[in-house]
Design a protein around this nucleic acid. Structure first.
Length: 325
DNA sequence: CTGCGAGTGCTCGACCGTTG
DNA sequence: CAACGGTCGAGCACTCGCAG
């Protein structure tokens, strides 16, 4: 996986050749939250910042992540999630549930995103899977956000999300959201969320996006003759990256001491790796599904399904090779 | 047995307005 | 005109139960 960095450099050419076409796209879909022309009379006072507008051109993707998301050029990487969000809001109603949406609408969403990103055939299947995940998550995210606006009048909502086209729909959404069964479910998931002790600091480009930043920081450190502390302490790459994605840049560089939860994780992992090394007298430590640097660090078993620290909807077989039967 | 899914809290950074 | 700073909109990873 380290080799990918080299290949992506080779593909940086096409990005620059078509980079500045963003200014000539003027057409946005029917309802645009922020008027393109503000009457100069009315003084400042307003900070509109509407949601993402779909662009009318197509990104040419030159590299993609393991899970099929565009990774290069950078503009495509950043635009991917935003586009999926805008598309979700365009075709889905706020009352929709992803599992209840008709096949037609779902495919329309996926197709609309797909025509905005040109990917090579080899990646297409994974790309479409990534779109599916992203649109679903964006829809859920939209609803969660909207629930914080439930006491606002419809006029405000209409302005914020033009795709909520009529008041009845907004009323229905409010009604559904105050249903006891829904609230119970919501509470349960909130409790689940609270069990997650650490919060990542990856930003909107996710882990793949942050890796680029890390590489840059590493080069700077290297020039100063320093090594990020976790690189010395941890061998397992997933654990190392997991620790890093929960640290501030200063902590990552070793300028500031680590905060307690990450510190504990790092120490636990380090201890585990040390004991493993002495046990096997082998130089490298092998991570297994149920006993790994990660489980040692977090002091809990790895759950089936998602792979910790990988994100992007990564499931187990995507990360680890299928074990022998 | 295993991957998918709904929903959430927390954080980043895109965007606007202001200043040098 | 470029650089800076503050705000809040939007995205991310993650959790465990349950359906294939």
């Amino acid at each position: 996986m380290k080799s990918s960095s080299g290949e992506q450099i080779a593909s940086s050419g096409p990005g620059s050749s078509r980079s500045e076409e963003r200014d000539n796209e003027r057409r946005v879909e029917e309802s645009n939250p922020q008027p393109s022309e503000t009457p100069a009379k009315k003084p400042r006072k307003k900070t509109p910042r509407g949601s993402h507008n779909l662009k009318e051109f197509c990104y040419v993707v030159t590299w993609h992540s393991e899970r099929g998301r565009p990774e290069s050029p950078e503009r495509a990487q950043k635009a991917f999630a935003m586009t999926c969000g805008a598309v979700a809001r365009k075709y889905c109603k706020i009352t929709d549930k992803w599992t209840d949406i008709s096949e037609v609408v779902r495919n329309t969403c996926i197709a609309d995103v797909a025509r905005r990103f040109q990917v090579i055939d080899e990646w297409r299947e994974r790309f479409l899977a990534a779109v599916n995940i992203a649109v679903r998550n964006r829809l859920a995210n939209w609803k969660t956000t909207a629930r914080k606006w439930m006491d606002k009048p419809y006029e405000i909502i209409k302005k914020k999300w033009p795709s909520v086209t009529d008041e009845a729909e907004w009323k229905k959404f409010k009604k559904e959201s105050s249903d006891p069964a829904f609230i119970a479910k919501s509470e349960r998931i909130r409790a689940l969320r609270l069990r997650k002790p650490l919060n990542h600091r990856l930003g909107s480009a996710g882990k793949e996006g942050k890796k680029k930043v890390w590489r840059k920081h590493d080069r700077i450190l290297e020039a100063a003759g320093r090594v990020p502390p976790v690189h010395d302490m941890l061998e397992d790459q997933r654990a190392r990256e997991y620790a890093r994605q929960h640290m501030t840049p200063e902590e990552g560089a070793g300028i500031e001491p680590m905060q307690s939860p990450v510190k504990k994780f790092t120490e636990n992992t380090h201890k585990w790796e040390e004991s493993k090394r002495s046990e096997t007298s082998d130089n490298s430590v092998q991570s297994k599904r149920w006993e790994s640097a990660m489980t040692a660090g977090l002091q809990k078993a790895e759950h089936t399904g998602r792979v910790l620290g990988e994100g992007e909807g990564a499931c187990w077989d995507d990360y680890f090779l299928p074990g022998p039967k």
